[in-house]
């Protein structure tokens, strides 16, 4: 009795694993993690290490800003690694939504940059973007760019939420 059932199976393709259910929200969150990581990486390498605009620690920073900065610094490295692992897992499940990923990355980058530029630099008084110059154009560029990133990311995320079948894994 068992054998006929087994012999019926071959004509049917094995349960297709590469057509996963698109996991939009998870894709967007992994993108956001990568975005926060990218923003904190760019901040560290470009502005601290290459340009030397930011100070490592300008000695006037209050404790709360130092803690906030340290937390985001540690979280940034962690976020980029975990975000990439999540993307790998979504691809493995063929549940990645490319548009949601890009949207998440842009929104995450923008959100962190805006937080850095407003709360950390201005409200908490962490190191400034640059020293011995008029700060207004720097602050404006920094924060306007952040808002643009968030807007573009939000647009892509909305688009991904509207289009019904946008999951794609290893195959397009």
């Amino acid at each position: 009795m068992a054998t006929p059932a087994a012999s019926q199976r071959p004509p049917q393709p094995p349960p297709q694993p590469s057509r996963g259910r698109p996991l939009r929200a998870r894709t967007a969150w992994s993108g956001a993690l990568i975005g926060v990581g990218i923003a904190s990486f760019v901040d560290e390498t470009v502005f601290h290490q290459l340009l030397h605009w930011h100070h490592f620690y300008d000695r006037s920073t209050p404790g709360v800003a130092l803690v906030s900065d340290g937390l985001f610094h540690a979280f940034g490295w962690f976020a980029v690694v975990i975000g990439l692992v999540l993307v790998a897992d979504l691809r493995h499940r063929a549940a990645l939504v490319p548009r949601a990923l890009v949207g998440g990355i842009l929104a995450g980058t923008g959100a962190f940059q805006l937080y850095d530029g407003t709360v950390q630099h201005k409200l908490m008084g962490l190191h400034q973007i640059r020293y011995h110059v008029d700060l207004v154009p720097y602050d404006l560029t920094w924060n306007v760019l952040a808002v643009v990133f968030i807007g573009a990311g939000a647009g892509l995320l909305l688009g991904a939420a509207r289009s019904p079948n946008s999951a794609s894994g290893a195959t397009s």
């Binding site: 130092l66 803690v67 900065d69 340290g70 937390l71 610094h73 540690a74 979280f75 490295w77 962690f78």
Partner: peptide, 11 residues
Amino acid sequence: ALVGAGAAHAV
């Protein structure tokens, strides 16, 4: 724990 310890280390 990793993020918390990393932050405390950085501060």
